[in-house]
């Protein structure tokens, strides 16, 4: 579990020449991407770029048609756009189930679940039913459950897309804080350019149908960042231009 310190040099995800075809439709074309430990990468693209497909492949829910995906740190955690919490369990029990499936002894589970809830600032939500929580709180519990897997790689599939802007903004800050505290690698999929720039160390732009890596940007804007920052806006404008260029190409044929 604490292999992070000994494996600092091993990438947390190695995606090599990955292509994916559904029937006659090619969704991903020759994607190569490596995540180093503790790295935060956002995958950005319009609809049809195969962002979610790539995450499913990385999560092992599906296998690539060509190419290889290696996740040296074991099964990655995955957070969905919808919270995907189990409604038959309380918030705390949802986290404990993840702990149990990871192999944590029963005696330690409650304490660890409470620690994780505190990490996402939901102390006291242990006994709450999922339907008693707001959208933002559910996503925080979902984040805590993902972290309970103690994986070195956290995959996030537009996790904040369904939230209101105020809550989303707060959760961006939370995610940055938690990421910096846990040293987990994050591969974050979004179609929101500002969100991508706000969060990431590296933004990867995918073109659509099939999804290919069009371009990458290093984001050297120092933290703490805000989505309103001029630097964030400046880079967002540049990336949006490129993204629009990619989309326009589809209108031409």
């Amino acid at each position: 579990m604490t292999a992070t310190t000994t494996q600092t040099k091993t990438p947390t995800a190695i995606i090599k020449n990955v292509s994916k075809t559904f029937g006659h439709q090619q969704v991903l074309d020759n994607i190569t991407l490596t995540l180093t430990p503790g790295e935060f990468v956002t995958l950005l693209g319009a609809s049809g770029c195969g962002k979610s497909t790539l995450l499913n492949l990385a999560a092992g829910l599906d296998s690539p048609t060509h190419g290889t995906i290696e996740v040296p740190g074991g099964r990655p955690a995955l957070m969905f756009q919808e919270h995907a919490l189990f409604p038959w369990l309380t918030a705390g029990r949802n986290i404990e189930l993840a702990l149990k499936l990871r192999g944590l002894p029963k005696a330690d589970r409650t304490q660890e679940a409470e620690r994780l809830l505190e990490l996402v600032r939901l102390k006291g939500a242990y006994g709450k039913r999922v339907h008693e929580l707001s959208g933002g709180m559910r996503q925080r519990v979902a984040l805590a459950r993902a972290l309970a897997q103690d994986s070195q790689l956290l995959l996030m599939d537009e996790p904040f897309a369904a939230l209101d802007a105020i809550t989303r903004d707060v959760l961006h800050e939370e995610l940055t804080r938690i990421w910096s505290e846990t040293n987990v690698s994050v591969l974050f999929v979004t179609h929101n350019v500002r969100e991508a720039v706000r969060l990431a160390q590296r933004v990867v732009l995918l073109s659509s149908r099939p999804g290919r890596i069009a371009r990458e940007w290093e984001v050297d804007i120092p933290h703490p960042r805000r989505i309103e920052d001029a630097d964030v806006a400046g880079l967002s404008v540049e990336i949006t231009e490129q993204l629009r260029g990619e989309i326009r190409r589809h209108g031409q044929h």
Binding site: D29, N30, T32, R212, I213, W217, E218, D220, G234
Partner: peptide, 19 residues
Amino acid sequence: GPKPKEQTQPTAQEHSQPT
């Protein structure tokens, strides 16, 4: 500030090789 990192951009003829 932001330092965009240029990548080789994929063009039509680059289908077969890593982009």
